[in-house]
């Protein structure tokens, strides 16, 4: 149970941190955070990695030298005999076990990885933010019945947070069957409680602020207080979390694909599936596993670096 508390606590802590500084800085907050971001090496490296990744993902299929499913060099690769083709002028990353160009597959696969990451993050963000906003609004302005609703919703999110995220994703994927949509939904659902709790915590911190009290004293309607006063001031931790969860989503999606729950369609290469297939030939062709693995790691690293740098930029305790 201890790990549950720490995870929930961590989320609440982030919510609090960003809340504290909202009160002082206001409109210049983003400008100030951006300035700090630019000064941070971590953020710049992260941003460059992400930029390269996104560009490759978008234009990948067009710049790939060969088709990702063309088995053009079928005659040169004999997995049964342990004969593989490594990097060469023609095929930069060598060939895979079916004689396809590994480099082209990596390029085309980047799009899948980005798609899975972004879509599942969006699922988590949208659903989580809705749940969190409802819960936060109920807790701050809903009176006694609102507090009950909030505490019910939060117990449910605590339950979800208590489950190891990969286990939860695997369970969902197992129920829904093998497909790319499954992976995106499974990974997205895992993120829902994180976003919900984060936004709710942040709204709670803002809900107790003087300007919300002032808005109530003015006679502003409750719905409007939530929309114009509380929500806009509660979003920054959610944005940080969205960046960080892109990294998690990419890793988890790869993990699900690796476990065989991902896209069964061989026409579309995906890094997780590629990693899973390459594993069988690890003894003879270790590089075949290394390419997708490194791709996943570097991408996740990019998002993590940027996310952590944003967290730091928004953390008032670290302000210089």
């Amino acid at each position: 149970m201890a790990s549950t508390t720490t995870r929930a606590d961590k989320i609440d802590r982030l919510a609090e941190l960003t809340a504290q500084q909202e009160a002082h800085g206001g409109a210049s907050l983003w400008r100030e955070a951006f300035r700090r971001l630019r000064a941070s090496k971590m953020a710049v490296i992260g941003a460059v990695i992400i930029a390269v990744f996104v560009v490759l993902a978008v234009i990948g299929p067009w710049i790939a030298p060969y088709g990702p499913t063309e088995q053009a060099w079928r005659g040169e690769v004999f997995p049964n005999q342990g004969r593989f083709v490594g990097p060469r002028g023609e095929n930069w990353f060598g060939l895979d076990h079916l004689g396809r160009d590994e480099f082209s597959r990596m390029l085309v696969g980047a799009r899948q990885t980005l798609l899975v990451g972004v879509v599942s993050m969006l699922i988590g963000l949208v659903v989580g933010a809705l749940v969190g906003a409802l819960s936060g609004a109920a807790a701050t302005l809903g009176g006694a019945s609102g507090k009950r609703l909030d505490s019910f919703v939060m117990r449910v999110t605590d339950m979800l947070l208590a489950l190891p995220s990969l286990l939860l994703a695997v369970s969902i994927a197992a129920v829904m069957g093998q497909s790319l949509t499954t992976v995106m939904i499974a990974v997205g659902v895992v993120q829902v409680p994180v976003f919900a709790r984060l936004l709710r915590g942040s709204m709670l911190a803002q809900g107790g602020s003087d300007y919300v009290l002032a808005a109530r004293a003015l006679g502003v309607r409750r719905r409007r207080i939530v929309l114009t006063q509380i929500l806009p001031n509660s979003l920054s931790p959610v944005i940080v979390q969205a960046t960080l969860s892109l990294a998690t989503a990419i890793i988890e999606a790869a993990a699900l694909s690796y476990l065989g729950l991902g896209n069964p369609d061989p026409a579309v290469p995906e890094w997780g599936v590629m990693l899973s297939q390459a594993q069988r030939f690890f003894d003879n062709a270790p590089m075949m596993s290394v390419y997708p693995a490194v791709g996943i790691i570097i991408t996740a690293l990019g998002f993590t670096l940027l996310g952590e740098a944003m967290r730091e930029a928004l953390d008032p305790k670290l302000r210089g």
Partner: peptide, 23 residues
Amino acid sequence: RRVRRRLQMVFQDPLGSLNPRQN
């Protein structure tokens, strides 16, 4: 809520009682 038009309040913390994101 309607009565609050007639009954207003000025707060102790001038900055804290103003929404930082509104002009």
